[in-house]
């Protein structure tokens, strides 16, 4: 796991999302808890040796155990509703429109390479994912057999869109070396990148002859956006090129899967 460092320590107007999060402190507390447990409940010598080995493993960041433990700690932060509320707090609908336009516009990086993600939300991604589900449902209704069960079609549409969003954001979170972002910001970036899919599916539902071309254009623009954001946000730019390429390739292939699997003549 990449440890999260502070994005902009020097700014005085630090808002809640860029606030410094001491994960080291949390990990230390967790280790202390484990030590206390070991003291309270003495185990067999073999098991105690095993537990010591586990603790040694967790100290190195490359094991799966530490990964799950850190995810558990991060999820426990969002148990309180008041910490989730700022993610959905939008005053103007124009903010969402600007972010939608930005998700297809990678040309912004040519002039301004020192990017900082100053504000983000999860309202847009949730709505985009539901629109994708609705478009898939519409496409399936046009083509599929009428005898097929209805709830099966709806479940397929919703499950594909949501699982793609979550799994892709998890992949980006683990592959992005040197990117100092929270998991929620990565979820917002990946969620807004799905807007390209919605555009291509809408165009190909209206007229299927433009479908392949629009898939290349909008899919390519959104993948370029993801690649460039990961490249310019990372501190280690030699290491990020291959993982960001893998992420963008997954994102570019999935649009063709959606286009050829769900929209038929």
């Amino acid at each position: 796991m990449t440890t999260n460092q502070n994005d902009n320590e020097n700014d005085n107007d630090v808002e809640w999302f860029n606030a410094p999060v001491n994960h080291q402190h949390l990990e230390q507390s967790n280790q202390n808890q484990n030590q206390n447990q070991n003291q309270n409940y003495p185990q067999n010598p073999e098991l105690s040796n095993f537990s010591n080995e586990m603790n040694e493993k967790t100290d190195s960041n490359s094991s799966f155990v530490s990964m799950f433990r850190t995810t558990k700690i991060k999820l426990n932060e969002y148990r309180d509703i008041n910490k989730v509320k700022p993610l959905f707090d939008i005053n103007n609908p124009k903010e969402v429109l600007e972010r939608l336009v930005e998700s297809i516009n990678p040309f912004r990086f040519i002039n301004n390479k020192n990017i900082k993600i100053e504000s983000f939300d999860l309202y847009g991604p949730v709505m985009i994912v539901f629109t994708l589900a609705m478009l898939l449902l519409f496409a399936m209704k046009l083509t599929f057999n009428k005898n097929e069960l209805e709830f099966f079609v709806l479940g397929k549409a919703i499950s594909i869109s949501f699982t793609y969003w979550i799994i892709f954001s998890v992949i980006v979170n683990f592959l992005a070396f040197g990117v100092t972002l929270k998991f929620t910001t990565i979820m917002s970036i990946t969620g807004y990148s799905i807007f390209g899919y919605c555009l291509t599916l809408a165009i190909s539902l209206v007229n299927n002859s433009f479908g392949f071309l629009s898939a290349i254009i909008f899919g390519g623009l959104s993948t370029a956006k993801i690649f460039l954001t990961l490249f310019f946000l990372s501190n280690q730019k030699e290491k990020i090129v291959a993982p960001a390429g893998i992420c963008s390739l997954i994102h570019f292939i999935f649009i063709f899967y959606l286009k050829f699997a769900f929209i038929k003549k």
């Binding site: 939008i90 609908p93 969402v96 709505m127 539901f130 609705m134 449902l137 209805e150 709806l154």
Partner: peptide, 21 residues
């Protein structure tokens, strides 16, 4: 009242599902 479009969109999605049905 400023966020009327943002409130209306999930409701719109909810009713489109019934319309498709």
């Amino acid at each position: 009242k400023e966020q009327k479009w943002l409130v209306g969109y999930p409701v719109f999605l909810f009713f489109t599902c019934f319309a498709i049905m």
